[in-house]
Amino acid sequence: MGPLVNAATIAEPKLVVDGLVKEYTSRRAPAVRALDGIDLSVGDGEIVSIVGASGCGKSTLLRIVAGLDHATTGRVEIEGCPIAGPGPDRGMVSQGYSLFPWRTVRANVAFGLECAKVPSRARAERVDELLGIVGLGGFADRLPGELSGGMRQRVAIARALAPEPDILLLDEPFGALDAQTRRAMQDFLLQVWARTRATILLVTHDIDEAIYLGRRVYVLSSRPGRVAARIDVPFGSNRSWQVTRDPRFLDLRDEIRDLLLANG
């Protein structure tokens, strides 16, 4: 198991973040160093989790990778290329609900394909395929306002997957959901991943979620945000809720909790 993980991270990482520093300057307050020397990498087809306390800079990190914000210093590269701005190669599902409420589920998922000028036939096929993957085939013509929170997040994930991004950035995608729905959505994400082998960088503040979904977990400390630990998760890619009772899972959870307490 160990060598395999290393092979995946050393060979061809999709995303490399190296010495990333982000400072917010404002006239009223002294500069805030939100991120202070973050190093991380995500290999092709991996799910990597980031956990950290609220305000430690998780969203900032994701926004910088997405190209929505710029690093103060440091290197961020996707497949060896630096990032100038947002693009369809880096799909993002943000913390809040960001679906277009005037578009049907189908049209929401199709948005990225329209931007890429995919012909309508191919577009419809791809949208149907994705709606099948996220289990919303029967809701294609509904408006987001008619869906539950969990369904909306599934649409958002399908929409982000549509342009076949190199990496999917998920910012607490299930944060607003209740515990049961959240569990279902985590299994759902694993299923989607099993079918698409998408590369995923997942931000969460839920330790169980980070371990359950991630092949690797980065634990961030707060103010300034630093990588406090990088932990490999010793479970294969076929996971079920059985692993949450595995003693190694429980040990990992305790270890991460202690790290967060020490660095919160």
Partner: peptide, 15 residues
């Protein structure tokens, strides 16, 4: 217009 909506559109490839 919510910020998240605009940023989502950008990350989906919209100019």
């Amino acid at each position: 217009v919510p910020r998240d909506m605009v940023t989502s559109a950008y990350t989906l490839g919209a100019g």
